[in-house]
Design a protein around this nucleic acid. Structure first.
Lengths: 157, 157
DNA sequence: ATAGCTGCAAAGGTTTTGCATCGCG
DNA sequence: CGCGATGCAAAACCTTTGCAGCTAT
């Protein structure tokens, strides 16, 4: 058995979580592709990507595998304000938060150690035991600020 | 004309926002009840509450009025991880964030000035123009921590 | 009287589930 | 072989919208 990369370790963790679950071609492919994705990805979008490469994969399987990954702790389910469910790695991607542009909809990831410190202070006050957090800052990205200043149009396509 | 309370001012702001919109019994009632609600409230839940008192109010009206309030800046649409849309006052309720218990589902509101400071630092770095933010800390509330330590059951009812 | 509101019912858009079939172990 | 996985199709769920009738200006 070869040495494991961090990713593969996680992969095994996934297998473990699977308990008496089977290893299948679809699951492997979905996991592989998921690990390649950098941002957060919606189910439908991810499914489309996958289908392009592997037309034999069904939506349901993608959906269920993503849920499985989340249950195994490999993925995290996140939801912005648009009612869609998205997933992102919950590992090798330690933690980050998002700046979300209200104009173009893009989201920018950022990390700031201050958040953890702040969180510590807050939870202490409420005797709350934190598990994870989510900070989203909504506003306008650099690019959209520039176009806004040129004309006040809100191109929301 | 009598003096206005903060709430009434906002109420008028709402009317203003209405522009050529009409004042109706339903809208008034919905607004009144909404202002009484302290936390964040889901559409369905709110509708049920209202219907109990005023059976002639329809879901659609509640839904549309809530959207209206949000558009007028009186309410804020928020969504946690359960796919439901909730609303909360966006005024007289300056700003706050949430601690959400993964066990009992309750959410606790908190305010911490440090968040604004942190936000300032972050956006500056990305030349992002912030409009609002949302910080949610998921974990276990005091009460659930205690029951957890007694037994590891996860009663998610 | 007229433009805007209501609310029922139905459409939309996602997420979930049922079930017969397929495939890993 | 047997049990779990797959994927189609359909169910469930919320959120939105269409429309005929109703109601404030």
């Amino acid at each position: 058995m070869k040495r494991l990369t961090a990713k593969e370790q996680q992969l095994y963790q996934y297998h473990l979580a699977q308990q008496q679950l089977k290893h299948t071609r679809q699951r492997q492919l979905i996991l592989d592709e998921f690990l390649k994705k950098e941002g957060h990805i919606g189910i439908e979008e991810f499914y489309q990507d996958l289908k392009r490469k592997y037309p034999f994969i069904g939506y349901t399987t993608v959906y269920r595998t993503l849920k499985l990954l989340a249950a195994a702790g490999l993925a995290r389910e996140i939801s912005f304000q648009d009612g869609l469910t998205r997933f992102e790695h919950s590992f090798a991607h330690p933690h980050h938060d998002h700046l979300i542009c209200l104009s173009c909809g893009k989201s920018i990831e950022f990390c700031h150690p201050g958040i953890e410190l702040l969180q510590d202070k807050i939870v202490k006050q409420y005797r709350f035991l934190p598990e994870q957090h989510k900070l989203e800052i909504y506003g306008y990205c650099k690019k959209c600020q520039m176009s806004k200043s040129k004309c006040q149009m809100k191109s929301k396509t």
